[in-house]
């Protein structure tokens, strides 16, 4: 390769390399702000601001959903398989809301440390399967647990 082209190629390489480094460091520094939601462990540890609007995410704990018979009120716990927090909600839940599935709730923490949500979003995992297969797996007791999208390591 002639030296001029080599020089140009290196210049482009350096430019992209330097810029990636800068952006990488910026994103690393901002990583807690880029996370869409707080995990229950973070909320229990007091990392989430009280009184301000936050988003909390986790898997809905099996058997925790309590529906009020008189109103739309619903209360359920979400977990990251380490800590749990309770979420109160009064609107229509998304179709995909299910026990054992992921949700992201937008709302404020009350004095008891429970989240009063103004919006609940369902999250689905990356696994797709036909209903018959899901049925068969459930019967055989081999249904894989919904992929936990919370990273349990405490470095986040």
């Amino acid at each position: 390769m002639n030296p001029k082209r080599k020089q140009k190629l290196m210049l482009i390489g350096l430019m992209v390399g330097g810029l990636s480094l800068a952006i990488g460091l910026t994103l690393y520094a901002l990583s807690s702000n880029i996370n869409l939601f707080y995990a229950p462990t973070q909320i229990v540890a007091g990392e989430a601001p009280e009184g301000a609007e936050i988003r909390a995410g986790g898997m809905v704990v099996e058997g925790s959903v309590e529906r009020d018979t008189q109103s739309m009120k619903v209360r359920f716990a979400v977990t990251d398989y380490n800590q749990e927090i309770w979420i109160n909600y009064e609107k229509i839940l998304p179709d995909l809301f299910r026990e054992g599935q992921g949700v992201v709730a937008v709302g404020r923490l009350n004095s008891e440390g429970e989240l009063v949500a103004s919006q609940v979003l369902a999250r689905h995992d990356e696994n797709y399967m036909p209903p018959e297969v899901a049925e068969a797996l459930k019967l055989a007791g081999e249904m894989p647990a919904a992929a936990p999208f919370i990273r349990t390591s405490s470095n986040k």
Partner: peptide, 11 residues
């Protein structure tokens, strides 16, 4: 993979 997102990981 790096952050908590609403979007699911790659299938």
């Amino acid at each position: 993979d790096w952050w908590y997102t609403l979007h699911q990981p790659a299938s």
